[in-house]
Simulated assay, not measured.
Amino acid sequence: MKKVFILAVIFIALTACKKETPAKTETVKKDTAAAACTKPKKEFKMYEMSELAALMEQMYVENEQLKQRILKGEAVGHFPEHLVKIHSAAMTDESDRDAFFNEQAANFIKAQELIYNDPKNAKQHFNDAVTACLNCHEGKCGGPIPRIKKLYIK
Rank of each mutant, 00 (worst) to 15 (best):
E113S: 11
L114H: 03
T92C: 08
E94N: 01
A99R: 01
E103A: 14
N107L: 12
A90R: 11
A106F: 00
I115Y: 09
A90D: 04
K120W: 07
F108G: 01
K120T: 12
S95P: 05
I115T: 12
N102V: 09
K110I: 13
E103Q: 14
M91R: 12
S88Q: 06
D118K: 11
A90V: 13
D93L: 06
N121D: 13
E94C: 00
T92N: 09
N102D: 15
Y116H: 09
D98Q: 04
D118E: 14
Q112N: 10
K110L: 15
A105Y: 00
N117F: 15
L114K: 12
K120L: 13
Q104D: 12
F101H: 04
F108H: 07
I115P: 10
N102L: 15
L114E: 12
N107F: 11
F108N: 03
I86V: 09
S95F: 01
R97Y: 02
L114A: 14
F101A: 07
S95N: 06
K120A: 11
Q104H: 10
A89N: 08
S88M: 04
A89V: 04
F100W: 04
M91V: 10
N121Q: 13
F101S: 09
N102G: 01
S95A: 05
N117P: 03
N107C: 06
H87G: 11
P119Y: 02
K110Y: 09
N117E: 15
D96R: 04
A99C: 03
D118F: 04
M91K: 11
A90S: 05
N121A: 14
A105D: 02
S88G: 00
Y116R: 04
N102E: 14
A89M: 06
A105G: 00
N107H: 10
F100E: 08
P119E: 03
R97M: 10
P119T: 06
N117H: 14
L114Y: 02
L114N: 11
A106M: 07
F108L: 10
D98M: 09
F101E: 07
F100K: 12
A106G: 03
P119C: 05
L114C: 08
M91Y: 10
I109L: 10
A105M: 01
I115E: 09
K110D: 05
Y116N: 05
F101W: 13
S88T: 14
K110Q: 15
N102T: 15
R97I: 08
F100S: 09
R97D: 04
P119I: 07
F108T: 02
Q104Y: 06
D93F: 13
N107R: 08
I86F: 00
E103C: 06
F100C: 04
F101D: 09
D96W: 01
R97K: 15
N107T: 06
E103H: 11
